[in-house]
Computed example of a mutant assay.
Amino acid sequence: MNALLGSLLVLATFVTVCNAQCFVIPHENIPGNLPNECKDLDGVTHPMNSKWKTKSCQECSCDQHGISCCNAVAIPADYDTTKCEKIFNEKTCSYKVVERNDPEKTCPVSGWIM
């Protein structure tokens, strides 16, 4: 019983640490029709073998399998969450971590998630 509980604790830790930041949108399969472009979730078409960055800071590409997108933003994960807060800048697609009481002062971050 202790071994099972220990295994579950380790698994829960890995699930918490693992942060899936990519996804795939497959092509619609039409028999005999090879795609020459990809259509994203907003209905925008992209040429085959092209790459682009979305408004939500994801890097995407179009290939024979469909659209692949991954998060392009490093997220601060190891900092003093009581004293500090993370702030996202949409223009630069980046976070900064600052003191809650004095946002002019940055806080040290010792771990980031991609």
Rank of each mutant, 00 (worst) to 15 (best):
E37L: 15
C84I: 06
K53F: 00
Q64Y: 01
G6N: 06
N33F: 14
K39I: 15
K86T: 05
G6Y: 03
T81D: 10
G111S: 11
P108M: 11
Y95G: 09
E90V: 13
L4A: 11
K96V: 13
L4P: 01
Q64W: 02
G111K: 12
P35C: 12
C69W: 01
V97Q: 10
M114T: 04
W52Q: 05
T16I: 05
V10D: 05
I87C: 05
C22Y: 09
P35E: 13
S7F: 05
K39F: 02
V24M: 13
E104T: 15
Q64A: 07
V98C: 11
C60Y: 01
V24C: 06
C84H: 02
S61Y: 00
D78V: 14
K86N: 09
E85G: 03
S110V: 12
I67M: 11
P35G: 10
L41Y: 00
I67Q: 11
T16H: 05
M114S: 08
L8Y: 01
S7A: 12
N89G: 06
K105C: 08
N49I: 00
H27N: 05
A74N: 11
L8K: 04
D102F: 03
K83E: 09
L4C: 07
V97N: 08
K51M: 08
D80Y: 02
C18Q: 05
K105Q: 15
P26H: 04
T13W: 09
A12V: 06
S94E: 09
V109Q: 12
L4H: 03
G66K: 03
I30F: 13
E28Y: 01
T16E: 04
